[in-house]
Amino acid sequence: MKTVVVYCHPYEGSYCHALLESLLKGASKSGEEVDFIDLYKDNFNPVMSGRDLLGFVKHQSVDEQAIDYEERLKKADRLVLIFPIWWELMPAMMKGFIDKVIFPGSTYKYTKSGLGMISLLPNLQSTTVITTMNTPKLMYKFKFGNAVKKALLLGSFKKSGFKNVKWVSLNMVKMSSKGKRQKWLDKVGNILA
């Protein structure tokens, strides 16, 4: 199995980084092949330019880094994204990754009617999104509308034909005990096992 891991956090001392290290350690133990993308270390440009939007209309990516990421996704059996939720949404860097990499003509195409989408990632068998936030789970769901689930999992991944989409939402991280954080690290460490 080959997994692409997309990581989006600027600070190596973060809990997101600890989750990443646990995931990679678990993958190494199980012999999982990992292709690691660190959006910040790659200096990924998340901004959609006029050229990018024209490429979107023509169904042809123009950003060289996005094209590289698309090619790497085409070889993957699994995709894992790790990022924090800031102000109830994903960071701009991760949103830019979705905008520029989940792209018509590269990772999906439209059905003949134009009402549906078909994945162009035939090897991709599952997608797991791992997030951290300080908002309580019920408050995120009912007061803030579960934005990540609606926009990313349903509105981007499932809509464009991704299979077996799962979300590991770790809530109230700053208020959690050391024991709870360790349980989360162990859980994430077993995702690729």
Rank of each mutant, 00 (worst) to 15 (best):
E32M: 12
I82G: 01
L138W: 12
K163R: 15
F162Y: 14
T132I: 08
V148Y: 11
L73C: 09
V57S: 09
G114V: 06
F83V: 00
V129L: 15
N146T: 01
K166Q: 14
L19Q: 06
G145C: 04
T131H: 07
Y110H: 14
H59C: 12
K2W: 01
K109N: 10
S156N: 13
T128V: 14
T3A: 06
K100F: 03
Y11F: 12
S156E: 12
V62I: 15
S30H: 12
A147C: 05
M175W: 10
E88W: 14
D38Q: 04
D99E: 15
Q60R: 15
Q65L: 14
G114C: 11
K163E: 13
C16I: 00
H59E: 15
Q65P: 04
G116H: 00
A92V: 12
Y7Q: 01
K109C: 11
Y69Q: 03
L120A: 08
M93G: 01
L138M: 12
T135I: 14
Y40R: 02
D63M: 03
D42Y: 02
M90Y: 08
K29E: 15
F162D: 04
G26T: 03
Q65N: 09
D52V: 08
D77K: 02
Q182N: 12
T128E: 10
G189I: 03
P104C: 07
V4I: 04
A18F: 03
S106Y: 00
P10R: 00
C8E: 07
G96V: 06
K109Q: 13
M48Y: 08
S156W: 11
R51Y: 07
S106L: 00
L39H: 07
V188W: 08
V34E: 08
L153T: 01
P91Q: 05
I102W: 09
D63Q: 07
L153Y: 05
S119F: 01
K41R: 15
I98W: 10
G96T: 04
W86H: 09
L192D: 06
K112W: 05
C16Y: 01
I37V: 15
M175A: 14
F103G: 05
M1D: 11
F162M: 12
W87C: 04
M175C: 00
G179S: 13
F142L: 13
A27L: 07
S28M: 04
